[in-house]
Design a protein around this nucleic acid. Structure first.
Length: 265
DNA sequence: GCGACAG
DNA sequence: ATCTTGTCGC
């Protein structure tokens, strides 16, 4: 899994304008349609995959936690990576790297991209698909963190966000039933023609009760995955929880590794 | 000037 | 993201 586009590796020392210019380049280089080798039908049920003889893809979830120094400032990012194959965790790695810039909406990958790439260096298995905690094409310049990382490594990737950065749902997304997907289209805030399909609000889980409900996930193509497949994958990989299993476990692992480091200090 | 804003 | 107890509902 080499870095195919070293020229697009996020550089936190760039000026804002240059970061945005790079994001437009990334969006140009990205493929927002299916282009992968594995059979997407094998994503959900490992049993079906096994009996069909198809080899399920190695799916890698990525998430971050943050470490603070003595002064109480967030100065390091901890990137956690969990690799799964046929529903089983086959590898977990993490990396800690210094943080260079604050969180700025739209420029997340310039804050978290380096730590993520550092963690991916530690990974020994070959990923077939990345799942990131954040947006892909649902982004002002169609280059969210899932798109950025996917293009740099040229690995199919999907963005899974818990809230909507930009774009507009074509319908009410509140309190929908499990399995529902509502299109998210480009609006005036997005660098794409109005109405361009950017992704979906996907309801992976829902309660039965009438007086409480779960919010949807905002799923979008990162690279080499179309919007339908991105939504399909999120639904197939979410078993008992709202988040798809690879990202949920990466989430847990990021917290666990952080706790272990804090205790040793 | 006002509003919106992944993690 | 992170700081955090209790509390509501199944």
């Amino acid at each position: 899994m080499p870095t195919v586009r070293p020229d697009l590796v996020p550089d936190a020392s760039l000026e804002r304008d240059d970061m945005e210019a790079m994001q437009r380049e990334i969006a140009d280089a990205a493929a927002f349609e299916d282009d992968f080798d594995f059979d997407p039908a094998t994503l959900g049920d490992p049993l079906a995959a096994a009996s069909s003889g198809a080899d399920p893809p190695t799916v890698v979830g990525v998430d971050q936690s943050f470490l603070t120094n003595e002064a109480g400032d967030q100065d390091r990012a901890l990137s956690a990576v969990v690799a799964m194959h046929g529903g089983e965790v086959i590898e977990r790695v993490y990396a800690v790297t210094p943080l260079e810039i604050p969180y700025i909406p739209g420029l997340l990958s310039f804050r978290e991209g380096r730590p993520i790439l550092a963690a991916l260096e530690e990974l020994s298995v070959d990923p077939d698909l990345f799942l990131f905690d954040g947006s892909g094409r649902i982004h002002f310049r169609q280059a969210g963190i899932a798109t950025h990382m996917g293009v740099v490594r040229d690995v199919p990737s999907i963005g899974v966000a818990k809230s909507l950065l930009c774009g507009s749902p074509t319908d009410d997304t509140e309190n929908r039933s499990e399995g529902t997907r509502i299109p998210i289209e480009a609006n005036s805030r997005v660098d794409a023609p109005d109405g361009t399909l950017l992704g979906y609000a996907v309801q992976t889980r829902q309660y039965d009760s009438p007086n409480r409900y779960i919010n949807p996930l905002y799923v979008s193509p990162g690279h080499r995955v179309g919007p339908e497949t991105a939504a399909d994958a999120a639904l197939a990989l979410a078993s008992s929880y709202k988040l798809p299993e690879p990202v949920r476990l990466a989430d847990n692992y990021a917290d666990e590794a952080k706790r272990n480091l804090d205790e040793g200090t």
